[in-house]
Design a protein around this nucleic acid. Structure first.
Length: 269
DNA sequence: ATGGTGGTACAACCA
């Protein structure tokens, strides 16, 4: 059995509903995890998304900011949103796949939107950066006690951990998303949690991988100053099932695009 | 060193 799971920071699900449909058509995943839906629960376009062939949707939203959603061809056995840093800011939702998912039954899918962290990489003077570090630290503690079962963790983790996950390692060492403290925290939590970095398992360094290009660069494609902020991790028991990880960079050239592009992991179970 | 763009929602905040 093939299992395909896509993660995409959509930066407003209502504004880009048609783009979600197009991406689902072209990629054809079993599960799509969205971040930055930017949509309160009572405005979430449930019916529009279901019409794309994904009848099962779990989501948590809030007005204006954040928000995560999981669309699935398979029913869920359970849905578990979680609050982090004692805030109710819609940055995580998890589902457990039901028996209808066949060999993937019982798999847990975690969808995260880690805080971006503001501009200044100093937790003493920038509370947003302090929040980001606290969030990652909480993920680390959570991962240590996670139940041992097949799991997939995806999302916009807002950290580009490796040298070739950014266009210039040296120039970004002081830039939030690539500072040593964030990298250390993310890599430690990934290793302690027993997670495998899907994209890098199949495409090791020094090949560059980017999933995000800033809106602020008009010549983003030519300049190509990207970062790999979006990740697909597998629990170690799924390591042997990973067949491909694709970055759908073409969506960045669509009209009125998200600044992030979809990332798809394909598993053979 | 600065400002560059985009989304929400309508001023200011976040990315």
């Amino acid at each position: 059995m093939h299992l395909k799971i896509t993660t995409w920071n959509i930066n407003s699900v209502r504004l880009r509903l048609d783009q979600v449909g197009r991406a689902l058509d072209e990629i054809g995943p079993d599960i799509l995890c969205l971040q930055e839906t930017k949509c309160p629960d009572n405005c979430f376009p449930l019916e529009g998304l279901r019409a794309f062939g994904y009848p099962h949707i779990a989501q948590v939203g809030q007005k204006g900011y954040n928000g995560v959603a999981i669309l699935s061809r398979f029913p869920f056995a359970s849905v578990d949103p979680q609050a982090w840093c004692e805030r109710s800011d819609a940055r995580h939702i998890a589902v457990t796949l039901g028996p209808e998912a066949g060999k993937a039954a019982g798999f847990v899918v975690h969808n995260f939107y880690v805080p971006a962290g503001g501009d200044l990489p100093d937790p003493e003077i920038n509370p947003k950066f302090a929040h980001k570090l606290q969030f990652l630290d909480e993920m680390r503690r959570w991962g240590r006690t996670r139940e041992a079962r097949p799991a997939i963790l995806v999302g916009d983790l807002n950290v580009a951990p490796l040298e070739h996950d950014v266009w210039s390692h040296k120039q970004l060492l002081d830039v939030v998303s690539h500072t040593p403290i964030e990298i250390e925290t993310l890599e430690t939590l990934r290793e302690e949690g027993g997670w495998i970095d899907g994209a890098r398992r199949l495409t090791p360094e020094p090949t560059k991988i980017y999933t995000w290009w800033s809106y602020r660069s008009p010549n983003w494609a030519i300049a190509n100053k990207g970062r790999r902020l979006d990740h697909a991790w597998l629990s170690s028991d799924l390591a042997g099932t990973l067949r491909s990880v694709d970055v759908h960079a073409a969506t960045r050239s669509w009209t009125r695009p998200s600044d992030h592009v979809p990332v798809t992991a394909s598993l053979e179970l």
